[in-house]
Design a binder for these strands. Structure first.
Length: 297
DNA sequence: CGAATAACAAACTCCCGCGACCAT
DNA sequence: ATGGTCGCGGGAGTTTGTTATTCG
């Protein structure tokens, strides 16, 4: 709860849920369509003049980033139009439609552009309308101490992730009783230790980055198949051209990466040979100091 | 010794299947 | 009931950045 000098009080309705999350709250942020917040922001307000007209504005994000360029703070009006204090105080004020996106050009009015790995705090602004006119100098801001989060594109803290699955019914498929986990494809399948490698058809178009001599600059330095280590467990799947064979090979970190059109064609021709053992950090024990944008409030 | 680059690391994006929700 | 859509975490590939090693 937070109250202002004028006596207005703003309370977080689902504080119990917010408080369940031990450690810094993380919110997934995605690019194309944005990601909804969970838990949502839902407030109650008290102490308004019941008959005065108020406009309720939310999500004026404080930005404390030091490293990255600071983007303009974004404000989103609540879906409801201006209404009396009594109506505002009557029901919960929810911002469940808010979506977080990494796309700075997001057009949907519910999408809020935020930077990943930065710490964000929602701010509620209440403006009282005088004679139906909104005075920009008039407004009170409310920050709930416990309501802030780190934007991530992938959960860093497994505890946070587990609590999201446990509490968000839309993620129920990932609970122990759900089927998502039971149907995971087998992981860690190594490619067969064969000396021959699938290659695209000779009609494959040369990639645009190819040199005039017909080879990738880097790949040209590694023409021998002995350099190909298919037992390695890397995240990079890269392709290299053997200039002696004038064909594409699939390997680990062996020179310039195949361009997208060529790789798509390659994948279509070799759909079953893509399994590999993927490296992952098994102990994702990353503390709050990890975040680039963390700052003190 | 310094530049080049191999090796390593991790953030990020797209898309997927499942379960909840929603409109018939 | 049923079929369409949405939202979820996750798989797998892409992109980007850092460190270690090699080479001239």
């Amino acid at each position: 709860m937070m109250s202002s000098s004028s006596g207005i009080e703003v309370t977080l309705n689902n504080a119990d849920l917010w408080n369940k999350f031990n450690g810094p709250m993380e919110m997934l942020v995605t690019r194309k369509t944005g990601r909804k917040m969970f838990p949502i922001l839902e407030y109650s307000v008290h102490g308004l003049n019941p008959t005065a007209i108020y406009r309720y504005r939310n999500n004026e994000w404080d930005d404390y980033a030091k490293g990255d360029p600071i983007t303009p703070i974004q404000k989103n009006k609540h879906n409801s139009e201006a209404q009396t204090g009594m109506l505002w105080m009557n029901g919960p004020i929810s911002f469940k439609q808010i979506r977080l996106t990494t796309d700075p050009k997001a057009e949907d009015k519910d999408n809020i552009f935020i930077q990943s790995l930065h710490k964000w705090r929602p701010v509620v602004t209440i403006r009282k309308l005088e004679n139906e006119v909104e005075n920009s100098n008039f407004g009170e801001e409310f920050r709930i101490d416990t309501v802030w989060f780190i934007a991530v594109t992938k959960y860093q803290n497994p505890s946070i992730k587990g609590l999201k699955v446990e509490n968000n019914k839309m993620a129920s498929g990932f609970r122990p009783t759900g089927n998502h986990k039971n149907n995971l494809p087998k992981r860690g399948t190594k490619r067969p230790a064969s000396g021959t490698f699938p290659s695209p058809l000779s009609s494959t178009s040369p990639p645009s980055k190819m040199n005039s001599n017909g080879h990738f600059p880097n790949a040209y330095h590694y023409p021998n198949q002995e350099n190909f280590d298919y037992s390695m467990t890397g995240t990079a799947h890269q392709y290299w051209m053997n200039p002696n064979q004038n064909m594409w090979n699939y390997g680990y970190n062996m020179g310039q990466q195949m361009t997208q059109p060529v790789m798509n064609q390659w994948n279509m021709q070799n759909p079953t040979n893509m399994n590999y053992e993927q490296y992952r950090n098994p102990n994702n024990t990353i503390g709050p100091e990890y975040y680039y944008g963390l700052n003190n409030f």
